[in-house]
């Protein structure tokens, strides 16, 4: 499979995993702003472990750049979701996956612009 497809697959998978982990780990009975910040921090920890696993196989910068952004954003999303009662798990995972896809797309478009401009 082309690396381009892998980049999207990694983005979606990482986004869903990070959002799910943040929603699971962040307590639901705290202020939404605090839970968002906690989720963002947790997301950065989760993406660090993911990066270590994925980086050698899929390329250092091509993994490191999108995963850092996904870790922060999907983690914040998951953290906020933790404070909303009865949020279905599939909704959290889908929202995280969509965030990951969006980041992968933005990085792809940014790369296309920068490499064409050169």
């Amino acid at each position: 499979m082309k690396y381009l497809y892998w980049d999207y697959a990694i983005g979606i998978g990482a986004g869903a995993l990070v959002a799910g982990a943040a929603a699971f780990a962040v307590p639901g009975n705290i202020h939404p702003l605090v839970s968002m910040l906690l989720g963002g921090m947790l997301g950065m920890v989760v993406q660090s472990f993911l990066s270590i696993v994925l980086l050698p196989i899929f390329g250092a910068f091509e993994v490191m750049i999108p995963l850092h952004i996904i870790g922060m954003l999907a983690g914040m999303l998951g953290g906020m979701a933790a404070t909303i009662p009865n949020t279905p798990v599939h909704c959290i995972l889908s929202a995280g996956g969509a965030t990951g896809f969006g980041v992968a797309l933005i990085v792809y478009l940014s790369n296309r612009k920068l490499t064409r401009a050169a």
């Binding site: 990085v107 790369n111 490499t115 050169a118």
Partner: peptide
């Protein structure tokens, strides 16, 4: 010449 290979990093 100074060309980008990946973003403006590589």
């Amino acid at each position: 010449s100074n060309r980008n290979v990946y973003l403006d990093i590589v």
